[in-house]
Structure formats: C-alpha cells, structure tokens
Simulated assay, not measured.
Amino acid sequence: MRNLSIIIILALLVGCNVRPEDNVTTDSYFNLEKLLNQEIEYLLSQNAGLEKSLTSNGIRENTNFQPQTKDDWESQLSLFFDANIDKPGYKGAFYEEQLSPLSGVSKTIYTAKSSKTAVRTFECLYSDDLLSQINIQIGEKNMIFTSLKTLKLYFDPNGEHIIGFDVEGQENMQLKEDMEYSIQAVITY
C-alpha cells in the first residue's frame, strides 16, 4: 500500500510538471505589426518617401513626405499598426477561412466573431502564393459615434515590399457634421 501511495504522488508530481515549451501555442493570426516593422527598416534603408493624396469632404490636398525615422514611418502607418490582429487579447476572436486559388489568386480571411471587435475583417490576398494585398475593415459604434474605415496595403509583384496604401473612412457624430475622407499613398524611391 505504501508503494502505491509513493507511485501516485510521483505520478502527480511528474504529471503537473509543465515545461514552458509545452505551453507555446501556434494559434496565431497574420502578424501585421511584424511585417510593418520589417518594411520600415527596408524603407529607411532605401530613403523612401510618400506621395499622398488626402480628400476630406470633397476637398483634395496632395503632399510629398520624406519620413526620416522609424517614428515618422510608424506615424504614417499608424492605422495599420492599430489594425494588427495578432495580439494576445485577440486569441480566438476571429474565424479564419482559406479560399482556394482561382486563377492563381487565393485569400485568407479573418472575420471577427463579435461585433464589439473593432477590426471586423482582415483579408490577405495572394497571387501565385505571393502576398499582393491586405484589406482591413474597421468599425466602431457607440451611442454618439460611428466610424467605418477600409484600409488597403499594396505589395510589389514579388510580394516583398509595400508599394502603397489606401484609407477610406466615414465618421458620424451626434451634434457634429458627418465626415468622409480618403487617403491614397504611393511609396517613392
């Protein structure tokens, strides 16, 4: 009986000893933040700039900008950083769907399980297995504010580097005029 008790205690101790590498999960979504940080390093090394066109309530403005630091680029891409869904708080928050290639184009779509999640859809488009575009839809709504945004990142034909981005949005607020805006940006070298 005593040997049986010792065996049970040893089994419990060994069974409860969880190694950290056993707790690593592979359930993750597309890591946009990692991609953007790598791209910023490349853009800085190439001394890249931006040609931007901003339209707000029908008024259009064109600008050229030469980001000099990582912070400058992060500021220009801040909406995309905010839309990263590969965060611990989002674990299990999205459905993932793989659409089979049709004429060489395939998609991975992440759709929010809850309407309370700001990022509603996150879509990666691949052309011949190379990332060609990322589309993100963001929606926020409360009693006094409604905001809808569509973000798009475009990649070169090799799927290696960002060549531009678009942002379209509208905001509706109580006691304030509605606003519609769009930004088209092209990366220049």
Rank of each mutant, 00 (worst) to 15 (best):
F30M: 00
L4A: 11
T55N: 07
Q170F: 03
S182M: 07
N23L: 15
D27A: 12
I163V: 15
I40R: 01
D129G: 06
N31W: 01
D86V: 08
G58A: 15
E96G: 07
L32F: 06
F65C: 08
N135K: 10
K149D: 13
R19M: 11
N23Y: 09
R2T: 09
Y126S: 01
L130M: 01
Y154P: 04
T117I: 10
L54K: 14
L12A: 14
V24F: 07
P88T: 14
F122I: 05
D156Q: 00
D72F: 06
Q76G: 13
L44R: 02
D178F: 08
T63K: 15
K149C: 07
D27F: 12
G15E: 04
T150P: 01
N158M: 15
Q38R: 12
N3C: 13
Q68P: 02
Y29A: 07
K70H: 00
D82P: 06
F94V: 02
W73F: 09
T26Q: 15
S147Y: 13
Y95L: 06
D82V: 02
T111W: 02
L36D: 05
L12S: 13
Y95K: 10
E168F: 10
V18I: 14
S78Q: 03
L36T: 08
E177S: 12
D22N: 11
S78F: 08
Q38H: 10
Y126G: 00
D86Q: 11
A118W: 02
V14D: 08
F81N: 01
A48K: 09
Y126D: 05
G89W: 04
L151F: 03
K34N: 10
